[in-house]
Design a protein around this nucleic acid. Structure first.
Lengths: 229, 229
DNA sequence: TCATTGTTTATTGTCAACAATCTTTTGCGG
DNA sequence: CCGCAAAAGATTGTTGACAATAAACAATGA
């Protein structure tokens, strides 16, 4: 498969978007799907050749990625896909819990019937996926569910921040949710969250959102404290 | 005054740090002190000439700044120091409140006597500054106080995130704290926070941290809701 | 006088070459 | 055979030049 950024299409695309941003998204995608694994080095020449561009835009894209925490740069050595330690992953879970709690707190007092309906629809579909034990169906819905709540909260910066944290957590290999019965438990929590939102109970929604994330954290690291390493 | 990055020093510095990161910090500084104001365009040629480097590193630095939200880039138009609307500033206050609350929650159960003493020392010095109405003394201490709590919390990512949010909020012109009596009120809240931390009362510390930030928010935007614009 | 269009100028986007640095290999001596 | 030093190779850091685009301006016609 040829991963070159299509140069024919390029002429049209280039008008509204720079190569740099295209490359950054492409790199994010490669990291997300695991084509680039944690610890891998990004060879600028190789990437530039593969994408059919010069090193300039590649370097600029890498600097953007560095700031968002997906890669780290060592001077004169190169840029490396970041490795997330247990400790850092745990830290990110705490942060994510706080951000999601905020989303719940903001959304509860102003959620619309339509939004509730949409969230309910998602939980129903997740229920079905859980019944059939289809993790590959459940997982994207789960992501979309949380994203929707943050989106509905109306805080744009919160949305981009959560997306950033989410991308960063993808660098952490060990995943939750793939343990038996986890999907059903998770979805029960989802239902509770929507209930609290519908009841416009800010504090309860906030608490349930945080607990939901922290439960995932506990599954990975055990009940309390910050894991070493 | 000549703002050129000293090329003599450069030879020594360049070994451990790239020009890009030096330039990024310099640009952050310029934005922080207001030498570059919100809405200003960053002319790559001019900046490169002024700093005595070529455009490459300047562009890379700008891409980093873009990701951290300090500038936004319009293709073929240039990079502009970001303008923060009332709405976005309010959003940032909410986020900051949540992050600080997390810092308080994490720190409370594990704060040491030494750390309490250090925080008390700061509140005392702020008290003095408030008595003498010295805002220029109070303000950096205030910043340092909050930074210390986040630092003591032990969550490294939280620290860098708070720093990022703080830098971004600097883009917002209207400042709080410069109203009469604000310093004393603020410092009373600080004392309450340290009390809660010393008592190892996580939830109270979290709540007080959040309230402290949200009070600033209210001073700027009024009691509730998200301001338009 | 005003709007529109063509031209000029300034600025950004991209590229390819050069310099500095790090890594690997090779050769030498012990 | 092993350790070490020096050279070769590979990779990043930086630069200056060129191409593409947008803004500013002038000229033309209504």
């Amino acid at each position: 498969m040829d991963s070159t950024l299509d140069p024919g299409l390029g002429l049209r695309i280039r008008r509204t978007e720079s190569l740099t941003s295209l490359i950054r998204r492409e790199l994010e995608r490669m990291i997300e799907i695991g084509e680039l694994k944690a610890g891998d080095r990004l060879n600028e020449n190789a990437l530039a050749a593969k994408l059919g561009v010069s090193r300039g835009p590649v370097r600029e894209a890498c600097r953007g990625l560095e700031q968002s925490g997906l890669v780290h740069v060592i001077v004169n050595r190169g840029v490396f896909v970041r490795e997330i330690s247990n400790r850092e992953a745990a830290e990110l879970y705490d942060i994510r819990a706080s951000l999601y709690a905020l989303a719940g707190r903001l959304l509860a007092p102003k959620i619309t019937k339509k939004q509730v309906a949409e969230l309910r629809r998602m939980t129903r579909r997740m229920e079905e996926a859980a019944e059939k034990d289809e993790l590959n169906v459940f997982y994207p819905l789960n992501v979309r569910f949380h994203e929707a709540i943050v989106e509905f909260s109306g805080n744009g910066r919160l949305l981009s921040m959560c997306a950033s944290v989410h991308r960063e957590m993808h660098l952490f290999r060990r995943r939750t949710l793939d343990m038996p019965g986890r999907m059903k438990i998770s979805n029960a929590e989802h239902t509770g969250i929507v209930d609290a939102l519908e009841a416009k109970d800010s504090e309860k929604a906030a608490r349930l959102m945080a607990d939901h994330v922290l439960k995932s954290r506990e599954l990975l690291f055990g009940p309390i404290g910050t894991p070493a390493d």
